[in-house]
Nucleic acid binder design. Structure first.
Lengths: 351, 351
DNA sequence: GTGAAAGCGCTAACAC
DNA sequence: GTGTTAGCGCTTTCAC
């Protein structure tokens, strides 16, 4: 007993115009060569449709055509996007830019069933998916390869999985090398690499750690066990760490957020950056301009990377896939105010 | 002749399990009391479904149930989100937070046909819509009131439309008053109000201008014609403006983005803020912490507002609408480093 | 308990 | 040129 005035459908228009449903369909959305419809009829149909404020039902159409013109962005913990660093905002922007310019809609998925990832993806509502931070340790990754819609991963490829899934990522190795070389040039010899709890196993974090290790080796510096730590997001562990005697003169944080947190903690402890301690981050969005002091960081062109991921995905969806496999973007180094000459150890112990 | 291995559907599962489609449907998604299915059968069906990796088709289901569990966020010019102030990021965050916690999906619409707004909205793919910056001057606003799905506007209500559409907004008037009173307390008497080109007619901009005028009147200060300007996003007009002799000692920018741009231009012109000129903005996200100097601004709790808008919308969608009409949030003032005592005019002319 | 069948709104192949 | 029809995959009433 619902007297909700049913939306006007093709049928309504057809009846009102005194023609068949299929004619209306052809007139309104007809493509191809079999749209032979009388000039007169067509006008009349269009008129009635407009008068009735006819809006085609996208669900029905998509169901029929198996095409939704919607791309999903898998973005777990999206709810935090405004809190920390700007990295994910840039990423979102890049994806959106490309999608919208090609008239696709963007749906954000903030949760996936990691046991059965396809259940969130293959339900027909998406034409393709961009996955940020695709976990490399996923036990269910094989399933993804069998997805019926294309998937593009926007993070470093994990050697455990990699192939068969397109990855767009940055040269973490190169970026880490830029950082290490920069610090070494400044006279630093003992550098702490800081990972972030809950993120320490993500492919990019691991890749940066690997890059750090290789870069250190490359310049002939030995890395010891206590040169790598896993701290919480707000770097609370910094206090205890800085209290103990250590000859580290610089910290390389895995991303800009952690780098900024370290700057905050250092300030609280009245440790001057960069004169007493140098700090470097990774990503280098505008966020690094707002820290005190401004954070030196390796830059990955995430906006362009995200746009590229979207572009590859759309091309695949539209069938004109140039069979791109993986794409690696180069990193650069943005030197700001948080790095300086290595602090002389003798002075430091005086503190 | 497509040998694409059709997704497994209810039918597939039914055949494989040797039961009817409707039984499978009931077992897998059955709600209500008429789900009487044999214990044994149920287990068997569930088993086969799992084995076949069955994923229900969301489109078909939505089409049938007229329910998509997806909310649209109308957000024109989304592509710029990472560029300017953080206001829109906070907004997005607030909406997302509420939506995701209630297991709704978020679809971003970056373009609407302003002639026929409903065509983007009523196509069945959305259960409801949050509209940021709903233009009050929209000629087609009447149409919106006839929408078959609920709409919540996330901006100041325009007197030309207002009612019949739920609005969530901040007390622009009160915010403007806080700003003016703050400046007047500091001794400022002549204040410039700066609008932004292309945004000057948005309801919030107008409301702030109105608030500014009233607040000035309230403290007995006269506002002259050249006290209100419309500048471009990067405030290029500042240079010409500051070159001419004026006795303005403070600028009230309509939002944080323009406020920041003004700070940049002032710095270029070597005009010291706040000693020679005070600048205030509006919105007051973390963005204001990153300007030089840090920007004093009226704060609107946009994240909470956005979450509230989403909450109201979802309640409406789920039919438990407590018939809320409009909601106005209070503003506060975040005094930072861009405001100071009024600059003495005599000194200024010496510059 | 289980199954047949109608129908959500649309498209496209095929008759006429 | 126009109309009929068969689905797309699902839910739900109603027989049995």
């Amino acid at each position: 007993v619902k007297d909700v005035p049913r939306n006007t459908t093709l049928k309504t228009v057809a009846e009102e115009a005194g023609v068949s449903i299929s004619v209306v369909s052809k007139v309104l959305h007809g493509r191809g060569k079999n749209v032979r419809v009388g000039e007169e009829t067509a006008r009349h149909v269009r008129e009635t449709a407009a008068r009735l404020r006819y809006v085609p039902n996208g669900l029905a159409r998509s169901l029929r055509m198996s095409r939704t013109n919607t791309v999903g962005l898998i973005f777990e913990n999206f709810g935090q996007i405004s809190a920390g660093p700007l990295f994910y905002v840039y990423l979102l922007d890049g994806v959106a830019q490309e999608l919208f310019s090609r008239h696709f809609r963007l749906t954000i998925l903030s949760e996936v069933d990691h046991e059965r990832p396809l259940s969130s993806i293959e339900d027909g509502r998406l034409d393709g998916v961009i996955w940020c931070k695709l976990p490399g340790s996923e036990p269910s990754l094989d399933q993804l390869k069998q997805s019926s819609i294309p998937i593009v991963a926007l993070n470093a490829p994990d050697h455990r999985v990699s192939l068969e899934l397109v990855h767009v990522f940055c040269d973490n190795d190169g970026g880490a090398k830029l950082v290490v070389d920069h610090l070494v040039d400044l006279g630093h010899r003992r550098i702490l690499f800081a990972l972030e709890r809950h993120e320490e196993l993500t492919p990019d974090a691991q890749a940066r750690l690997g890059g750090f290790l290789r870069a250190m080796q490359n310049v002939g510096l030995e890395v010891q066990a206590d040169d790598v730590v896993v701290w919480s997001r707000d770097a609370n562990e910094f206090n205890a760490w800085s209290a103990q005697t250590t000859d580290h003169t610089a910290i390389f944080a895995w991303n800009e957020g952690l780098g900024a947190a370290i700057l905050d903690r250092a300030r609280e402890q009245q440790i001057a950056v960069p004169s007493e301690l140098s700090v470097v981050g990774f990503d280098s969005t505008r966020f690094c301009e707002s820290t005190v002091p401004r954070l030196t960081a390796a830059n990955q062109p995430i906006r362009e990377m995200a746009a590229m991921a979207a572009q590859i995905l759309l091309d695949q969806i539209e069938g004109k896939s140039p069979s791109i496999q993986d794409i690696r973007f180069a990193c650069t180094l943005d030197v700001r105010d948080s790095t300086g000459p290595a602090f002389n150890r003798t002075q430091k112990t005086q503190r």
